[in-house]
Nucleic acid binder design. Structure first.
Lengths: 211, 211
DNA sequence: TGCGCAGTGTGCAAGTTTGCACACTGCGCA
DNA sequence: TGCGCAGTGTGCAAACTTGCACACTGCGCA
């Protein structure tokens, strides 16, 4: 049906069926994001999103329960990807290093972490209903991250602290990014914030608290 | 799924389902044409066409019985469109005028009559199996055209002559076009050929034989 | 000649999308 | 207050696609 190429990379181990499902979900998500940015969440109907995505209203419901779900799907997607990436870091790697490294792997995901993440964040700041969900997702991710770190041998309480610090850094990064309209790479900015977070709080920024 | 827009024109009275079917058929046809041009008909497998079009091998078979069918579908499509256009010309219009006018309506069809028609024609000239089918389609069209003209009140034998002359003109046009690699508009060239066809054969090109 | 193999056509079950019907909600308005 | 109406969620049947199995053909090669 698609008139343009969606083949390109023959590297996918997934079957045609699964690739098309992913593409549909992705298309609906992008349509939701696009229309919400343009008209505001309340002015956008499920039907409009479905039309924009090229699917029926019924199919929209097959993928997402609500508009908010569709808009924020990338959020959960990124969370899941990040979680997986951390879990897949080499076993011996110190936790903070693993977290920073995992962040780098977000790039090639189905959702580009630059334009789209900032769009979602701005939408969340504008729409309370989105913000709540976004924070909830973040909170869930924090729990999961801590669990993963514990699974890697980190002491439980320390895992929670690290996960909290890491996500707090990301929120700080996003806040800075959104406010400054900075053209810098999001991931570079995040790296800098993470570095600052890892320094001793009461000393001049020279030592390294990590590991 | 498709990641690019295939909505654009909301003018379609067709439902989503039919539009997607048409898009799939179109995509398979284009894929077949593209690959055949690139590698030659014999080097192209049904599976490769299906992949290129983004559908399964089974789905290819749901739309076309053979590779040749897929490549030449535009041919039959154009024939059907032309036939419909002639039938829809105003009742009082003289037959030759109606034929010329109908030809003009081919443009907005799903198959652009320029780049794609010439491609098909060249392929047909290169592949005997395609040529046979193309000629068969043409022959069928000639019958149908004559029938339509008769339906418009033209005397049967005259209908057949007119249809034959018209299609002969089109073949001549295509031959000229293909050989000259002419940058002129295909339809303009066709018009000129049709004008020549309508002139008295044994006189200087001044009088007008039509109607 | 016979074997293996790529390509093809087709039946069938399972998965996906569509279209439609119906119920329900929230909101403006008489 | 009650009515109408747009938007939404969901069940269901029909339509479409996929994946797989199986049979068949044509071709190269031992």
């Amino acid at each position: 049906m698609d008139t343009t190429d969606r083949n390109a990379a023959p590297d996918s181990p997934l079957g045609l069926r699964e690739r098309k499902k992913a593409a549909t979900r992705e298309a609906v998500h992008r349509a939701a994001l696009r229309l919400t940015v343009e008209h505001g969440l309340d002015q956008v109907t499920v039907e409009a999103i479905a039309d924009e995505a090229g699917v029926s209203r019924r199919t929209f419901s097959n993928y997402f329960a609500t508009k908010e779900d569709a808009v924020l799907w990338g959020e959960e997607q990124q969370a899941a990807t990040l979680l997986r990436s951390v879990a897949e870091r080499p076993a011996g790697e110190p936790p903070w290093t693993a977290l920073r490294a995992a962040l780098r792997t977000l790039e090639p995901g189905p959702v580009s972490p630059d334009r789209e993440t900032i769009t979602r964040t701005r939408l969340a700041l504008r729409h309370p209903s989105l913000l709540g969900r976004q924070l909830a997702t973040h909170a869930g991710l924090e729990q999961d991250l801590a669990r993963v770190l514990t699974g890697r041998g980190v002491e439980p309480r320390r895992s929670r602290v690290l996960a909290a610090a890491f996500l707090a850094s990301l929120r700080t990064t996003m806040r800075t990014w959104v406010e400054s309209e900075h053209p810098a790479e999001l991931l570079d900015l995040a790296d800098e914030v993470l570095r600052l977070m890892s320094l001793p709080f009461d000393e001049a920024p020279r030592g390294d608290r990590q590991a």
